[in-house]
């Protein structure tokens, strides 16, 4: 009769496992370390990109921006000479409104998307117009459209994901990378890398980028259901560079608790796609460990006053032992 109760943990058990709950995250961490005035730095991708370039974090190169409806027709001038590019909203979230153009024929203005769909100029124009009118941004605010360089995703994740592009999310606390996972799109998630849509989350060892534990829809898994690949064999290359992006993002924004979304470009290595001032808690499930203890340890025994590089090395050495 009370069997369903077993699917609930007691608060004591969760606390013992070091799980960070939503209320504590909001009250103890975000409201303490992320002053609201810093949010615009990460909410607007144009701003994030500018700051990132200044501090030396690599991001997809900005080709152009369109701010007002009357500028929408300028798109042809902006993409002149480009073969492939991405058009996306500056304040979008959850991958909404991202249009990936893999092939653009200047003659006749033919666009081919990543999924192979053919688009005519007026459809692209309409898409930009939608972005500007706030269709994809929170609360329907007017938005800016960004045209940026296409990332050529490295092949190493190819076996692990269905269509789409996996990315790596690093949680950075007080400048120290605290926890990481990679998000792998599945058939069920429609090729999108969002966990709540059914993508797989694989927790990564913060000291070496190796797979620790995998979940899909909050259920532990070890095999990618679409491709049959062994998720536990994942090892993210350029791990130090990944962590460095996270650590620098702290310097760049001043946010004490942030999530950095990083993709791996085949030629240029890890690139930061976006930053998040309120990263979710699902990463704990992907890692199979609670975040609270990690954060507590950083509070207690990690030195302050180190540079980004030193912090990354500190993390790499600490966990390796």
């Amino acid at each position: 009769m009370f069997a369903w109760l077993k699917s609930f943990a007691s608060p004591k058990e969760l606390s013992k496992a070091g799980v960070l709950g939503m209320n504590r995250r909001n009250f103890d961490i975000i409201s303490q370390y992320n002053p609201r005035c810093l949010y615009p730095l990460v909410d607007d991708k144009v701003k994030t990109k500018e700051l990132a370039n200044k501090i030396g974090i690599s991001t997809p190169r900005l080709i152009g921006i369109i701010e007002y409806q009357y500028e929408a027709k300028n798109i042809l001038d902006i993409i002149h000479g480009q073969k492939e590019f991405v058009i996306k909203p500056a304040q979008g979230s959850g991958g909404k409104g991202v249009l990936v153009i893999k092939d653009y024929q200047e003659e006749g203005h033919f666009f081919t998307t990543a999924s192979g769909r053919q688009l005519a100029y007026n459809e692209v124009y309409q898409h930009i117009s939608n972005i500007l009118s706030g269709l994809y941004s929170l609360g329907g605010k007017y938005d800016t459209a960004i045209v940026e360089e296409l990332v050529h995703f490295s092949d190493i994740f190819k076996d692990y994901s269905y269509q789409g592009v996996p990315d790596v999310r690093v949680i950075v606390y007080k400048g120290y990378p605290a926890m990481a996972m990679t998000r792998l799109p599945t058939k069920a998630s429609g090729g999108r890398a969002n966990l709540h849509q059914g993508a797989i989350g694989v927790g990564l060892d913060i000291s070496n980028g190796k797979a620790l534990h995998g979940v899909c829809r909050d259920i532990p898994i070890t095999i990618q259901p679409d491709t049959g690949a062994d998720l536990m064999k994942i090892e993210v290359p350029y791990w130090r560079e990944h962590l460095l992006i996270g650590a620098l993002a702290y310097e760049m924004t001043g946010l004490g608790y942030l999530g950095a979304d990083i993709v791996l470009d085949a030629r240029r290595g890890p690139m930061m796609l976006e930053l998040n001032a309120r990263p979710g808690l699902a990463i704990q499930i992907a890692n199979g460990i609670g975040l609270k203890n990690c954060l507590k340890e950083i509070d207690k025994s990690y030195p302050s006053g180190l540079s980004a590089e030193e912090r990354v090395d500190f993390v790499l050495n600490k966990r390796a032992k």
Binding site: S7, F8, A9, S10, P11, E13, L14, K16, A17, V19, G21, M22, V215, D218, I219, P220, Q284, I285, G288, I289, G290
Partner: peptide
């Protein structure tokens, strides 16, 4: 959350 994070309990 007691349900959601249940798998994290060792």
């Amino acid at each position: 959350e007691l349900k959601r994070f249940r798998p994290l309990v060792k």
